[in-house]
Structure formats: C-alpha cells, structure tokens
C-alpha cells in the first residue's frame, strides 16, 4: 500500500526541513564541535581546527577584496590571517562562547582588520578623510575636528599598543637569539606533540633527551629574555 499519509504531515516535514536548512543546524552543531575541539587542551587538535577554519572561510577574502579594492591580495590575506589569530585568542580567553555563528564573528573581525589595514595604508598616503563609495567617511582617515576626549582616548590606546608592540619585538628578538633547532623543539612541545614523536623528529635518543633539550632551550630563551629586559630597563633609566 503506497498512500497513505495525510498530506499535512508531508507539509510539516517540508517546512521543518526548510526551517532547519535555513538556520543551519549542522552549522550550529559543527560550531559547537569546533569550539569543543579548540578548548580541549590538545594543541594539535586546536591547530587542525584553525587550519580548517582558515580554509573553510577563505571566501571572505574574495568578498572583502571586492568590497575594498584598495587592498592588495597580500594585504587582505595578512588581515585574514590576523583575524583568525585574533579569533583564536578570543576563544582561548573565553571572550567568544559560541553565542553567534563562528563565521559571522570571524567575518566581523576580518572586516575590522581590513579597515585597520586600509587606515594604515591611507594614513601613509594622505592625511585627509577618504572617500569610499561616494560617501565621506571619517572612519578611514584622520579628521581634524575630533573631540578632545576622543583624542585622549586614542592616545591611551596608542600608548598601550606601543607597549605591546615593544613587548612583541622583545620576545621576537629573544626567539631569534636561540638556535633554529631549539625554536622548533620548543614549538613542538608548545604544540603538544608527544615526547616520543619529538625524539623521532629531531633524532634525539628518547623522551628523557627531549626533556633535557626542552629544558636547555627554555633556559637559554629565559636568559636571553632576562638580558633583553635588563637592557630595556637600563635604556629607560637613562
């Protein structure tokens, strides 16, 4: 017997399918799974997730490249990479809890990064407000009539950014001070690779040798940081 269902049940299931396909339940499930993997404490898994996110949302680059033709492909890719990194930090710091879709959130960060890139680029070229899409916008240029308190706020942010920049430079310098092998071993440990794997990869005897090398490299890195910090405080003292 073929029939034999009331048509209303078909209509209901049809609308249920439409509804779910519209809100994307699979997207929600996948988002929660991705967040779970990121927060699992397994750096290898986390890395895989971010690689997946990067690849999966690469269409954003097309979208914003056509929206902001002023940005070159390289600049857009840089902004996109930074957006993924920023998203990573926000998830790990608990600022993103999955209330909105990852794609929406990521797109917003990426857009802001693109705007920052445009601002940097245009401020180098000209100090006048830029005109985008026929509308004058103070967002992308430096306006002369900004309120004073806004300027103070801006100065504070810039000072903080400068401090962070200095810290970044110091840490980058410290990393450059250790050998390539040390950098890679410390990175492998930071990524959560098992000692056995690290031993195989770097042709070390066993896990004990890996622990020894990690300690040696870590110690060296700390010494360099200590030295650089001392130099900075000496400079500031002068």
């Amino acid at each position: 017997m073929h029939c034999l269902r009331d048509s209303s049940s078909y209509i209901n299931s049809f609308f249920v399918i439409i509804f779910f396909s519209y809100i994307g339940p699979f997207q929600i499930v996948r988002d929660s799974k991705l967040l779970e993997d990121i927060l699992s404490g397994n750096p290898l898994l986390r890395r895989k997730v971010f690689n997946f996110l990067y690849e999966h949302h690469i269409r954003f680059v097309f979208k914003l490249m056509s929206k902001y033709p002023i940005l070159e492909q390289e600049e857009c890719l840089d902004a996109y990479g930074e957006a993924i990194l920023a998203f990573k930090r926000q998830v790990l710091e608990g600022k993103f809890r999955g209330k909105s879709k990852i794609s929406t959130y990521l797109f917003r960060i990426f857009k802001n990064k693109c705007i920052d890139a445009i601002r940097k680029k245009t401020s180098k070229i000209e100090k006048e407000p830029m005109i985008i899409g026929g509308e004058e916008s103070g967002l992308y240029g430096i306006a002369d009539d900004e309120p004073e308190d806004k300027l103070e706020q801006q100065e504070e942010i810039e000072a903080r950014n400068q401090q962070l920049q200095q810290k970044r430079q110091l840490l980058e310098q410290a990393m450059e001070g250790i050998s390539e092998k040390c950098r890679k071993i410390l990175l492998a440990k930071y990524q959560g690779q098992p000692y056995v794997e690290i031993a195989q990869q770097f042709q070390l005897k066993n896990s004990q040798s890996v622990r020894q090398t990690v300690h040696k490299c870590g110690k060296k890195l700390k010494e360099i940081i200590r030295m650089l910090l001392a130099e900075v405080s000496k400079r500031e003292g002068q």
């Binding site: 690849e55 980058e172 410290a174």
Partner: peptide, 28 residues
C-alpha cells in the same frame, strides 16, 4: 618562563600566519 612561553606562542603565531598565507595564496 611566562614570557618565554609567550615568545614561543608568538613564534607559533608567526609560523601559522606564514603557513596560512601560503595556503591562502594556493586557495585563491
């Protein structure tokens, strides 16, 4: 040691950025 970890994290970020950029170029 905290700073050393941050340095490695920063290095990790740079490595990721480099790898992603390469991946992005290929994808584009």
């Amino acid at each position: 040691q905290q700073l050393a970890r941050q340095a490695v994290q920063l290095y990790q970020d740079q490595v990721d950025l480099r790898e992603w950029k390469e991946m992005g170029k290929q994808l584009l």
